[in-house]
């Protein structure tokens, strides 16, 4: 059996969301926000009419990174922090194949923090979905770069997290992502819309999903988010999506709710722009070096003639 040269990325007849789920039962705690994410992602794969044998879901290590195991797609449950470069390799080797990264906030911004900017600045055609619960849950409660100040953690002192949380929306816009959004795992409608847009986007898309951990994060809970969630696009506060300066300004309000009782928790699309995607440039390089259907070995070896 040889590798097919061309693959069908899409199914002719649409499948149902459940067709994109494996028969493995998730090991997440009852009430975990990530249940909503895996349901939405399966639904979005169905909406995109992806062939389950053509899409690859890549993750790292952590509670949320188990997600590819619960999906019926190609999956790589890789090493802690390394989902993004694994996905890059998969994308560059088979650029016609959709690649989706599903990881946690610790995986993406702590151990894997050196990787995420590179596919963003290169505008590689892939989607990174971060399930942001503000904690390292699989190792039983340590703070992450996205944890709010003062949040308890077993490696923090009794004073809690000393750090200011990093702003992933500002960061991804700065890095050069061309689709940046935040959504909330208990709002299936908004999450489904945003994930679908991210998957359909030509270029690097980043989706931050507020996905509460009921076991370890007792502050950023469903009860906390429910009354505060606020759609910045629907409210008309942020509609000029290709305006990068406006997007940065809006993104700077991301954590206002940490400081003010009345401030909302924003969800919505912050930035969306069309820019050349990386692989188109790779094709130009292949063309530049005279890529042919059949390899011209003489042309290759002649350059080493004395």
């Amino acid at each position: 059996m040889a590798l097919p040269a061309v693959i069908n990325v899409h199914v002719e007849e649409p499948l149902k969301a459940k067709d994109y789920r494996s028969d493995i039962t998730p090991t997440w705690c009852p009430g975990c926000g990530d249940f909503g994410v895996v349901s939405s992602l399966a639904k979005a794969y169905a909406d995109q009419k992806y062939d389950p044998s053509a899409v690859t879901t890549v993750s790292g290590i952590g509670c949320s990174s188990r997600l590819p195991l619960w999906m019926n797609s190609f999956g790589i449950h890789s090493c802690h922090g390394r989902a993004v470069p694994v996905a890059i390799g998969a994308h560059l080797a088979r650029p016609e194949m959709p690649v989706v990264v599903t990881i946690g906030d610790g995986d993406c911004f702590a151990i894997g923090g050196g990787h995420i900017m590179h596919p963003a600045r290169r505008n590689m055609n892939m989607t990174v979905i971060v399930m942001d619960n503000g904690t390292f849950a699989l190792t039983k409660n340590q703070t992450s770069p996205l944890s709010r100040t003062g949040l308890p953690g077993t490696l923090a002192s009794d004073l809690g997290n000393l750090d200011e949380p990093m702003n992933p929306i500002e960061m991804m816009i700065t890095y050069g992502a061309t689709y940046v959004a935040q959504t909330y795992s208990a709002n299936a409608k908004h999450m489904g819309k945003v994930i679908n847009e991210a998957l359909a986007h030509q270029g690097f898309s980043y989706v931050n999903i507020l996905s509460p951990c009921p076991t370890y994060n007792k502050v950023d809970t469903f009860a906390y988010f429910r009354p505060r969630i606020h759609d910045i696009n629907e409210a008309g506060e942020h509609t000029d999506l290709s305006n990068r300066a406006a997007a940065m300004m809006k993104a700077s309000e991301l954590y206002q709710h940490h400081h003010s009782e009345d401030a909302p928790v924003p969800v919505g699309v912050y930035y969306q722009a069309q820019k050349p995607v990386y692989y188109e440039k790779v094709k130009q390089v292949q063309e530049f070096y005279g890529m042919k259907e059949t390899i011209d070995w003489d042309n290759i070896f002649d350059r080493y003639k004395p």
Partner: peptide, 15 residues
Amino acid sequence: ISALATVIGASFTGK
């Protein structure tokens, strides 16, 4: 680290 990660991702797809 990412060098080998990309190689693993690429090979996973069959190349």
